[in-house]
């Protein structure tokens, strides 16, 4: 049984983008804060901290979840993937990222990492979704810049091509 007192910091170890990392945290620390300020992975953004905007979406064991609605301690021992894992080590964008660039599917880019992570999960499970399914998943994210249309186009392009986004990492 894992038990941590409220005022006690504990060492939380997890795998972030393939690398084993650890840092100290109180039980109440949100995973979003732990990733950004504990582990230095600032690619994951915080937009509402009540689970509506989707900017903080990350993968835990391959499944897209809101990191603001997850405690850091809950991710202990898990595989966490964030937007920093998507591009190749030389910086080459993966097909999903490239489609976002090619369709002008981002402007300020703040909501984008969460959307990329949602679809990394979703397209791995459903490589060829319908547009309705894409819209359904995208409706779990708020974007204020684009009006969404180009995001849908970008994802449609990835979905219609034979390869789903790379899922290593």
């Amino acid at each position: 049984m894992r038990a941590v007192k409220g005022d006690q910091k504990t060492r939380i170890a997890l795998t972030l983008n393939g690398r084993k990392l650890a840092a100290e945290a109180e039980p109440r620390l949100l995973l979003s804060d732990f990733l950004r300020h504990g582990l230095g992975a600032t690619g994951t953004h915080v937009g509402c901290e009540h689970g509506v905007c989707g900017a903080c979406t990350v993968l835990i064991d391959g499944v897209a979840v809101r990191s603001c609605l997850t405690l850091a301690v809950q991710a202990e021992g898990r595989e966490v993937r964030t937007v920093e894992s998507l591009a190749a080590p030389d910086g080459a964008l993966n097909p999903l990222q490239a489609a976002f660039r090619d369709h002008h599917a981002l402007q300020c880019g703040f909501c984008t990492p969460g959307i990329l992570m949602s679809f990394t999960d979703f397209l791995a499970r459903n490589p060829q979704p319908s547009e309705a399914q894409i819209r359904e998943v995208l409706s779990g994210h708020l974007c204020r810049c684009t009006g969404y249309a180009n995001i849908v186009e970008a994802i449609k392009e990835v979905a219609s091509s034979s390869h789903a986004p790379r899922s290593e990492g």
Partner: peptide, 17 residues
């Protein structure tokens, strides 16, 4: 918007819960 402190327990069995 950060939670107040709380103790966290992750039991291994339903009996412990």
């Amino acid at each position: 918007m950060k939670p107040r402190p709380f103790d966290y327990v992750r039991p291994d069995t339903v009996e412990e819960v």
